[in-house]
Amino acid sequence: MAKHTTEAVSTAYIPKITTKKRSQLDIFRKYWMFYVMMLPAIVLLVFNNYIPMFGIIIAFKNINYADGILGSAWSGLKNFEYLFKTSDAWIITRNTLLYNSGFIILNLIFPLAFAIMLNEIRSRFVAKLHQTIMFLPYFLSMVVISYLVFGFLSDEHGYLNTSLLPALGLEKVQWYFTQEVWPYILPLVNTWKNMGYFTVIYMAAIIGIDDEYYEAATIDGASKWKQMTRITIPLITPIITIMTLLQIGKIFNADFGLFFQVPRESGVLFPVTNVIDTYVYRTFLTVGDIGLSSAAGLLQSVVGFTLVFLSNWVVRRINKDNALF
């Protein structure tokens, strides 16, 4: 099987080779080592990602396992219908896009600021300690986080209702029935969980900056703020760009755990917590048809793909080197 596929990969190349035969051969001769280096990853990607991609056709099929995936009957766009059946279609699209746009911004600004500030802490030990601790929430699964959030917000035993609000002389709040607060709670939880993760990436980028820039800046008497806006940020722009582009690709895919576990399936909150992934999951629980989830997945991919393409095009216009492809 492995052999077949590598052959398949090389046959796919033929058209290009024949059109520009000479130069392509030269390229191969010059960079043969690169192909050898990339081979393990290519093989893995083919098996782990590209071969299973034939499953995309499931989105257009009425699956019957006895007939196999290829043998099942075609169903046209029928599997997509349920996504647009109700007014929920608008709500889940809006929620998914708004939350994810918010997350992209939050996951950029805060971790970047944290990384820059951490870098200014004089004691290495302290900086390391903070960085380690900030990473802790990332270890927790969303299910556990949902327990913790419930520990704070529960009607009967939650801290806010049993301790904090009474202490402030305020009325109890039924948090899981109060829509208005969730557009803040969810980004808060998300940022809290992922802060350490993104900070580490930006830390690595900042550490890679040549010290000479800062030395020169000090000699010129540049303030810290100037150093940040003129040296640090411009120099790590490529990494900021790539992180943003990659997240834009996933803008139609919501973090299932966050939106499903944390609000505890409280129906009253659906207008502000229902996203594409949770909507699809609930349908799947009742209908149990992989065609329906496949259809949603394909739609998410196509939208993500289109958006990345557009943003990449914009990036390319501004600075060719920062573009993804």
């Binding site: 990853a41 290519i42 782990n48 299973p52 995309i56 690709g249 996933k250 991919s301 793909f305 492809f325």
Partner: peptide, 21 residues
């Protein structure tokens, strides 16, 4: 090849075909 790897981030065939492989 950048595109080749990036593409896998966006499109997937789903659990069943992946499992079959």
């Amino acid at each position: 090849f950048t595109f080749f790897v990036f593409f896998t981030m966006l499109f997937s065939g789903g659990l069943v075909p992946w499992y079959l492989v």
